[in-house]
Design a protein around this nucleic acid. Sequence first.
DNA 1: CGATAGATTGATACTGCTCAATATGGGTGG
DNA 2: CCACCCATATTGAGCAGTATCAATCTATCG
Lengths: 244, 244
Amino acid sequence: MPAFIADPLLLLTRKLQTLARLDEADREALASLNFRTEEFEAGRYLVREGDDASACCLLVEGYACRHKLADDGGRQIVSFHMAGDVVDLQHLLLARADHNVQALTRALVAWIPCIELKRVGRERPTVGQAMWRETLIEASIFREWVLNVGRRDAKARIAHMLCEFAARLAHAGLGPIERFPLPMTQTDIADATGMTPVHVNRTLRQLREEGVIAHKHRDLQILDWRGLRRAGGFDPAYLHGMAA
Amino acid sequence: MPAFIADPLLLLTRKLQTLARLDEADREALASLNFRTEEFEAGRYLVREGDDASACCLLVEGYACRHKLADDGGRQIVSFHMAGDVVDLQHLLLARADHNVQALTRALVAWIPCIELKRVGRERPTVGQAMWRETLIEASIFREWVLNVGRRDAKARIAHMLCEFAARLAHAGLGPIERFPLPMTQTDIADATGMTPVHVNRTLRQLREEGVIAHKHRDLQILDWRGLRRAGGFDPAYLHGMAA
DNA sequence: CGATAGATTGATACTGCTCAATATGGGTGG
DNA sequence: CCACCCATATTGAGCAGTATCAATCTATCG
């Protein structure tokens, strides 16, 4: 396990450094934050819609997703998250959670008091800018997901989702883009792409049969990156450099 | 035409005032911004994906939408905008446009230099906070749209879209919630809900036949607000007070 | 070694799409 | 003022992509 995992605040600093040029004082301010770690089993909720959030949730290890529930019980995943992501930065200014955050795998998180994070953002403008920028990129990703779910067919949806996940993983330094463990079940993929698990299964098989990917036991190999990109209509511009 | 329309900066101030408690100095800073107005015919693009934006676009009159295009040419509208909205606040920190902005009706806009808006946001923290909050609420709306296109059926999608639009119009003081001109065509509604225009037509008819709405010649009456809410699974919490 | 979650496959149903034709209404030029 | 034109709305018929339902198979784990 790499050294930086040991310290959540270092992980946070590392992440924000990809978003703005932090100086020594910025890093010190971040390093002075208080936090409390907590471990979650796969499937457990870190945040529930309607919660009044007083702490932000930094994902230190494992994977999580954010999702909303429809009236009929249908679950729509709106984003996936990996180590280093602050899953609910919006709670700095929006008190009430408008969606759920759920662990996809066993996950270790660090709770950082909103007030402190807000103070650092105010006193260290570059840090504030990095956080704001992060939420803006997130918004761009949501827009792309609306497009994905609204205007692409099954194969393209899944291909696009895999491209995004691979690109973000690689950018976060969590593995090569060609092969990595895929933390989500087919049901999770279905809930992220607005499909049914059965159809996800068939569509993944199709991508396998076309030789674009290999996928077995939560292990994903992208055999033909160009082909997968093309299948998903994936253009990483919307990630604004969060995956280069 | 109400007096505040005359001055774009007053309109902007009015909007930001709903997001944070501005003081006199905040208002003065906003009033000192430079801008340049421009008029657009319906259908014209205000911003194109890939543009390098140096000015933010305040909608002064008329209606606009933001959208992305899929590889196959399909258009996915990701948000609707009305007078008072800054359509592309994200350009304060993201230089390159990741989507298009298009006028739905004839529209009057005011271009405000990003640099100036950014300066005001920095020097007047309350103003900065109001703008940040606006983008966070926007992100929440995007999440709801992902749910809408991903996990609701045709009738619910349209009902939800109408509820949101009505609620935001009313909150912006642009008309009563029960009856207002609907600026978008059925094709626009289709592109916002991930449907085809034909099916939008049939679904609107269904809502009409059920007595929930009346809709003719771009004029929408909500005859049964409770019924429409129920049909769309609409809960305004995700608007975080931008529609009460 | 069972228990259990997840993956896989088959058969069938249905929502929403496609294609195509017609109607309507608002705007325009003669 | 009327006739025409165009975008938009409306309707019908047939089809396709996904959903549903249900069964079976396969890893993993205590």
